[in-house]
Nucleic acid binder design. Sequence first.
DNA 1: ACTTTAAATTCTGAATTCAGAATGTAGAGT
DNA 2: ACTCTACATTCTGAATTCAGAATTTAAAGT
Lengths: 210, 210
Amino acid sequence: MTITRRPLREQIRDEVLTRLVRGDHPVGERINEGELADELGVSRTPLREALAGLAQEGVLELRPNRGFWLLPLTVDEVKETYPIIGALEAFALRQCDIQVLAESVPRLNELAQRMLDVDPLEAGRIDDQWHDELLKSCPNKRLLQLIKAQKTVVHRYEFAYFTSRKRIMRAETEHRLIAKAILERDMDRAAGELVGNWTVDPGVLREVFG
Amino acid sequence: MTITRRPLREQIRDEVLTRLVRGDHPVGERINEGELADELGVSRTPLREALAGLAQEGVLELRPNRGFWLLPLTVDEVKETYPIIGALEAFALRQCDIQVLAESVPRLNELAQRMLDVDPLEAGRIDDQWHDELLKSCPNKRLLQLIKAQKTVVHRYEFAYFTSRKRIMRAETEHRLIAKAILERDMDRAAGELVGNWTVDPGVLREVFG
DNA sequence: ACTTTAAATTCTGAATTCAGAATGTAGAGT
DNA sequence: ACTCTACATTCTGAATTCAGAATTTAAAGT
């Protein structure tokens, strides 16, 4: 038996992030450390470590002497963050092993298909898996780590974002086009499509932000 | 009088980072929290916050129950991080206002010149300023923030890196080429040169790592 | 002398406590 | 009624304390 002894701060991080993503906490509001610590049944020390980490990633803001605040979801944040991820992933894709990529295509298409069959929430998770599978042969591990951190920020949006069936279908289409480009060994096109995959269309932005 | 009341954790962060970059601490070794806290005259709590931040940025590693370790400078880290910064800066450059860029050229060239006149240590600082000036009109603030964080990691290397006069001269040349491309409104070339500026040549790598 | 095991020490992770900043409230003065 | 100030309360930032994990030291056995 492998007894789990994960540091408390990590467990807290996961739980807090889940709550924030789930929308339990009012957006744009202060987080009361004492209250939250009590709820979670832990002390403020590891909680603060977890919150500080999320602040550094850009999910929260830490105002001196005012505490942690859940940053509001803004159009700007979407407009800024998604393209960054697009650029990073395209860059990562170019460092991937083309042979491994080609071998991944069946799995990629399988995942693309599955996105259509599940509920919107699960779709976001599968979308993640798709991108992980795509970039798994990128030797620049630091780059992959960076991409992962950026995605944490946008995960908050996927609730609003992937609830649109249209959006899921668009993602599916794009995923298949990228897979096709890979099979044809056209990495320029694949990278271009990948950037496009991280481009939010204005219509959806209006839909989400009004 | 504006009394300075910067959070202790931030002051500690700066001081610790300076020490690490300066090479005060043996690379690849554990950091003794109690000892360092005593040296700095603070308690372990804010020190840990500072260290945790540096760990998240990738300067330190935090091993559960083993504490913080100063990551060794590795060839891999250079090979992985520099290209990331190159890709991010090139991406940022494309979002800059071409008019503002053109107006920056005199200042950019002045900074490029000054790199030649100062000691290698100061050269690194000026190099930073040059890149800041270049990208100041990029509207994607999150991207700029990300670039800055990545550079923190790399700063440790500049001691070893910029001590090479040859390297400084190469940087100066490249900076001027980028400025020239901007004046000619050839942003493709400018971006290409910028990526090149973040490409470490194998000769220098051998020189630094043996 | 060398290995193994047990005790002692050191150090990290987390809880608790304390100090001071920010906020909220009540009362005095206009 | 409204504003300003003084006081009380709440909350964050930091220090201190405590528990338990990892490491080191010492001793026993081969």
